[in-house]
């Protein structure tokens, strides 16, 4: 466990207690999650890793307040969110959670700027402040020169960076990324991981969901799930630093 680790405080941002999720498909019960208890601390970078179908996305949706567990509790910033209404959950997501999805999930025919403004729109931030904050977030991910571009006019890596800017713009407690590199070529993937590591270095809590061991090792801690259960939690010893990979890659390009 990362308790007492150099970069992380001991404050728990998000916690699940015995969370289970069952789906009923044509009468057959599928246990997507069984008694999952995890805790994410402020400033951590954690990977949730497991093979396809192990329940990673289900878990991410539950800790992202997009879905409710069949049983068990989810505690966000000290508050049990089990009894919240859909509208209250929407407010909590808006305030505390930033999402990055495998398929980007940007609004089509909408500019990068407007996409990043979206969480601010629902937070009730308007006018110049909204424009400024969205612009800042986009500059932060290196897209200050692409504000007016539509999603369709951006590369996959750029689209994912817009999505990261959108996840950041509301100063969330936690950024959840589900297979953020899944739809990207390796270089764009590394860039996105570098971005997430950089954000984490600036103090933002990041959770990455992946089936890829190498991607998982960008985090400080890995939670391994298998068949809907937490099988192991371990500290990453030889952490992959995406910025170094990127530098190596550039060097290769120059020489090669």
């Amino acid at each position: 466990m990362a308790e007492g680790g150099a970069e992380t405080s001991s404050r728990v941002v998000l916690e699940t207690r015995d969370v289970s999720k069952q789906y009923r498909l044509e009468g057959v019960e599928v246990n997507a999650l069984q008694a999952v208890s995890i805790a994410i601390r402020a400033g951590e970078m954690v990977s949730i890793m497991g093979p396809s179908g192990s329940g990673k996305s289900t878990l991410m949706h539950i800790i992202g307040l997009l879905d409710q567990p069949t049983s068990g509790k989810v505690i966000l910033e000290g508050d049990d969110i089990s009894s919240l209404s859909p509208n209250e959950l929407a407010e909590q997501r808006n305030k505390h959670i930033g999402f990055v999805f495998q398929s980007f999930n940007l609004l089509s025919r909408t500019s990068a700027q407007a996409n990043v403004e979206l969480p601010l729109v629902y937070a009730g931030v308007s006018g110049a402040e909204r424009v400024r904050r969205a612009k800042e977030a986009l500059e932060h991910v290196g897209l200050g020169n692409r504000l007016g571009h539509f999603s369709s006019q951006l590369s996959g890596g750029q689209q994912q960076r817009v999505a990261i800017a959108r996840a950041l713009v509301n100063d969330p407690s936690i950024v959840l990324a589900d297979e953020p590199t899944g739809n990207l070529d390796s270089r764009s993937g590394i860039e996105v991981m570098a971005m997430l590591q950089e954000l984490n270095a600036q103090g933002i809590t990041v959770v990455i969901v992946t089936h890829d061991d190498r991607i998982a090792r960008h985090a400080q801690r890995v939670i391994r799930v298998f068949d809907g259960r937490v099988k192991a939690e371990e500290i990453v010893r030889d952490r992959v630093l995406a910025a170094q990979e990127l530098a190596a890659l550039s060097a290769e390009e120059v020489t090669g």
């Binding site: 859909p86 808006n94 999930n105």
Partner: peptide
């Protein structure tokens, strides 16, 4: 549908 999902994920309420 997807757009609605995105909006809800980032905080849109039923009313919105």
């Amino acid at each position: 549908t997807r757009e609605i999902g995105i909006r809800k994920a980032v905080g849109a309420r039923t009313y919105d």
